[in-house]
Amino acid sequence: MSTGREGLAFLKRLVVERTATGVLLVLLAIILVTGIVNPRFFSGYNLQTLSRQVVIFGLLSIGETFVIVTGGIDLSLGSLTALLNVLAAWFMTHGFGVAGAVLATLAIAACFGMWHGFFVTKLKVPAFIITLGTFAAAKGLAAVITRGWPISGLPAGFSNLWEGMVAKVIPIPVVLFLLVALLAHFVLGYTVWGQHLYAVGGNLEAARRFGIRINRVRMAAYVVSALSAGVVALLIAARLNQGNPTVGTFYEMYAIAGVVIGGASLFGGEGSVIGGILGASIISVLWNALVLLRVSSYWHEVTVGAIIVVAVTVDVLRRLRGQTVP
């Protein structure tokens, strides 16, 4: 009886409080079940495919975490990925060289972040609206630039960024991802700016009264978020060996879902890089599992939609419960 109750309390803690450990256990459970149903899940090839997928969603989730912690949201990441992917390919095929194209792509990404930050901080436009604007416009712009066709013929060797291996087993993008993740974790958890991101998300007015430069702090969060789309755009250019205006569809949803599953609150002030990565991993593994289990791809979006609803509802319930605490 008492162990049953303790078990229930344990489950409740996992689901309601969504600690990193809880999210990790859910992830392991999904992996285990998928692996039992279809042992091919654990094949080396599948694990490499899966790990690269985690890199894409994980990077976007990391970027999104910075914005969501401040109480904002960035709906533009998927469309921005498409636009920046096309631009990267355009730069590479128009004499910028690989390094020049990478720098130019990231610089444009940063400009988009500043654009969002400017509207949110100076003009007080809700983050939801201004990034929704980019969501629509960037996708269209990508198609305009390419007239709907992919830009191919990228420099030979650029695809190594995606295909290449470190020590023959670990894909280069995975190594890159781990470095970015480590840096982001350090910045968010151990620096003054990271602390200010949480403070701004927890109580903007208090942060302002305490002399924190709240606009600068939030502006930088949108820049980080947009930069994550820039990096993903470059990785996708390397994967497809082209710039394609149709990539990135729904990626912002996956990124946001990952962040929220990982324990962040859409009300701001809560969230972590590790949580975001674990959440993104859950999305990626589920996606992979649905493929392996031969579920129609249309169901993938339904699944992610359902997960977002559940995760956000849990977040709201937790918030309501938190308010009744004396």
């Binding site: 998300g201 927890g202 109580n203 208090a206 009264r209 002030g269």
Partner: peptide
């Protein structure tokens, strides 16, 4: 009066 603390910290 409203204290103005960052309650998440």
């Amino acid at each position: 009066q409203d204290l103005a603390l960052a309650e998440n910290l």
